[in-house]
C-alpha cells in the first residue's frame, strides 16, 4: 500500500508551502505542509499522492547503505557479524 517516492527538492515556495521536486529527471510539485523537519533545497523527501510525508535522513540512509556494503564485503564469510540486522 502507499506508494511513496524519494524525491529531491529543487525549489521551495515558503508562502504556499509548495516545493518543486525531482525524481530521475522528472520534476513535479509537492506539498510540504506535513513535513516536520526543516527542509531546504537539496534535501530528499518521501512524496505520497503529491504530498511530502517526511525528510529522508541522510545519516540513516548512509548507515543503511554502509551496512549493505558490509554485507557485500562479507562474501564467503559465514555467519556474518552479530552487529548486522536481526538484533533486538
Amino acid at each position: 500500500m502507499c506508494l511513496a517516492i524519494p524525491s529531491k527538492i529543487t525549489a521551495i515556495d515558503k508562502e504556499t508551502s509548495m516545493a518543486t521536486v525531482e525524481t530521475m529527471g522528472v520534476t513535479r510539485s509537492a506539498n510540504l505542509a506535513l513535513v516536520e523537519d526543516e527542509v531546504s533545497v537539496g534535501d530528499w523527501v518521501l512524496v505520497h499522492v503529491g504530498i511530502a510525508m517526511s525528510r529522508i535522513d541522510e545519516n540513516e540512509a548512509r548507515k543503511n547503505l554502509d551496512l549493505f556494503e558490509d554485507i557485500l564485503r562479507e562474501e564467503d564469510e559465514l555467519n556474518v557479524s552479530d552487529s548486522g540486522p536481526g538484533q533486538c
Binding site: 506535513l34 516536520e36 510525508m53 517526511s54 529522508i56 535522513d57 541522510e58 543503511n64 540486522p85 533486538c88
Partner: peptide, 18 residues
C-alpha cells in the same frame, strides 16, 4: 522484537505533525 529497517524514512516517533 520490533526492528526498524527503514530508518532513513521512519523516525521512532513517526510524524507527529501529520
Amino acid at each position: 522484537c520490533c526492528e526498524n529497517n527503514y530508518a532513513r524514512s521512519v523516525r521512532e516517533s513517526g510524524n507527529q505533525k501529520a
